[in-house]
């Protein structure tokens, strides 16, 4: 018990302190080094190519001969004033809104049904998700058969006595039809067929995400609502749905990104349609570039698409990463 009262700080030695180096530095640097191959690949294939596309969109390369002379924003002016691209933007908005709305509603209904402690839950879940495992191209081919105006679903309508059956994707009508400049503003009826096929394919995703969300709502919260006298509907609207705000936002972002990427489905199902009533920017870009050889205009379309995509995915990814910390 020699020195029971020794303040620890009293014995400062007078050795020269050398700054400590980072002992874990090597392994951490190794972690960084291992990322380099991927970073180079993505640096070239994603960021480099985007920059390249951006450059092409500002040149006069609109034939098979790469004329890389400066054109400024002329290609953007051209596409934005074209009937086809204006139609594309209308179609993109209509498609995205209907597709996401359909996904959210159907996905939520399916998730609620599956969440009722039912038997064979796994089987039902599998049935609603399996279209996700199928190629968009396959979906397009199959649904162009099912929604073929002269057969398919329409046979049922005929059997039920309807004489005016829908023309599905062959329709060139707009509802409503409002002329604005050179295009009709309204819902291109032909596009509805594509929305149906897309919702069939993708609603399983919304269901799976909602199901996860529903299951993470604490049981006590529902019990508390029940004790407070809320019925099932009241509980859903006032307690569960507000809890699923983040889940819904996630689905909206992911599905909007998917809708901006839709290509194979349109390509295989309808193509551009009459008067571009089912055309999409993606298809326009592909055909402008590789069939029309207007590379600079194609690049301009692609850059517009990219900016649209970035507008909502960048905030989403940033908030997702911030939420981790």
């Amino acid at each position: 018990m020699a020195n029971p009262v020794t303040p620890a700080k009293a014995t400062r030695q007078t050795t020269v302190r050398k700054p400590a180096r980072r002992i874990r530095g090597w392994d951490n640097r190794m972690a960084f080094f291992t990322l380099i191959p991927s970073l180079i690949l993505l640096g070239v294939f994603v960021y480099g190519f985007i920059a390249w596309s951006g450059y092409v969109s500002l040149t006069n390369w609109n034939s098979l001969i790469p004329t890389l002379t400066w054109a400024g924003l002329r290609n953007y002016a051209t596409i934005f004033s074209s009937f086809r691209f204006q139609s594309d933007l209308r179609n993109l908005v209509v498609f995205t809104v209907l597709f996401i709305a359909g996904d959210l509603v159907i996905g939520m209904i399916l998730a609620l049904l599956v969440d009722q402690k039912i038997r064979a839950e796994g089987l039902f879940r599998s049935i609603f998700i399996y279209p996700m495992a199928i190629s968009m191209v396959v979906t397009g081919v199959i649904w162009s058969w099912i929604l073929n105006p002269t057969t398919g679903i329409n046979l049922f309508f005929h059997a039920l006595g309807f004489t005016h059956v829908p023309e599905w994707f062959l329709s060139s009508r707009f509802a409503p039809s409002v002329h604005l400049g050179q295009i009709d503003i309204g819902i291109p009826v032909g596009l509805l067929a594509v929305v149906i096929a897309a919702v069939w394919q993708m609603s399983g995703f919304a269901m799976a995400v909602y199901l996860g969300g529903l299951r993470s709502v604490p049981e006590e919260l529902k019990e508390a609502a029940r004790i407070d006298g809320a019925g099932p509907w009241r509980t859903f609207w006032s307690v569960i749905l507000p809890q699923l705000k983040g889940t819904t936002a996630t689905i909206v972002v992911i599905q909007a990104a998917a809708s901006l990427k839709v290509f194979g489905l349109i390509y295989a199902m309808t193509g551009s349609g009459q008067d571009f009533s089912t055309d999409m920017p993606n298809l326009n870009m592909f055909q402008t570039t590789f069939q029309g050889d207007a590379f600079a205009q194609g690049a301009a379309i692609a850059i517009v698409l990219l900016l649209l995509m970035a507008a909502f995915t960048v905030p989403y990814v940033l908030s997702m990463l911030r939420g981790e910390r």
């Binding site: 991927s38 985007i50 596309s53 990427k261 290509f263 194609g298 692609a302 990219l306 995509m309």
Partner: peptide, 17 residues
């Protein structure tokens, strides 16, 4: 973040290069 954003690009924007 740099890696993840590669998930959210429309591939048309890299197609020509």
């Amino acid at each position: 973040f740099v890696i993840l954003m590669g998930l959210f690009i429309p591939y048309q924007s890299v197609l020509i290069p």
